[in-house]
Amino acid sequence: MSAVTQVAPVGARLRLPKVPPLTALAGVFLVVVAACALFPGFAPQDPAAINAAESLQGPSGAHPLGTDQLGRDTLSRLVAGARTSLLGPLVLGLGVTAISTVLAVAAGWFGGRTDAVISRIIDFFYSVPALLVAIVVAGVTGGGFGITLVVLIIFGLPMHVRNLRAAVMERAHLPFMEAAVTLGLPTWRVVLTHLVPTIVPNVVAVFFVTFTYGVVELSSLSFLGLGVPPGAPDWGRMVADNRAAVFTDVWAVAAPAVAIVLLAVSANLIGEHVQRTHEQSRKER
């Protein structure tokens, strides 16, 4: 074993994957946001400390990104808000990815009646706008982060189930799949170890696309005052709370707004990069 590793050329150890600079920056930004979400202690000041005397100040040494209407430090609130702003889209992305993969494999691999039932349900939900339903449900039940997420996950499924199902059906008749079936492997092994690995890049793409939509939709709901409870530091809510200040001091609104867009764009860029490298490697094969 050890002899094999020594034979490997020296350069191979240092070879980094080729990543466009913009995508690399996007990755760095995601890491920073994740760090803020994990360690809210990074915040230079107490994000909830109200100081009316210092309301709506521009950037200064004490407040690098200025203060909001209640005199709270904008940078600290950005750091504290990273958790909800990241967690929601993350749960949404994982939920949609997992469920749509299961449904797509069931519909595409087993076909027949399973496919018919799943496809019919998906068709029905297809033309219903998710955010609109989430707003109505929040209105009826009195809101809550959990139920909003569930609604967004359910209504976010259709497009991805359709795309993944098409991918599954395309792979299902490749020679190695038929070989696995002919060998008499149990169905769960054929599906889990032969079929699913081939659609992993598509599944990863689904995750990043849904994450992006999650950032957009959840921050929109926060902006409308639905979802995240009042007072909680959340980027969408920060924009809504300081909206009136756009006439006097733009920093309290601009900082969270830019953070939202950067988060969504970063996820989008990385998702596109994953998809592009996958397409290239398929062409090379």
Binding site: T212, S220, G236, V261, A264, V265, A267, N268, L269
Partner: peptide
């Protein structure tokens, strides 16, 4: 890409 990542309220 930018448009798909930017909420309407922003």
């Amino acid at each position: 890409t930018l448009g798909a990542s930017t909420p309407a309220f922003v």
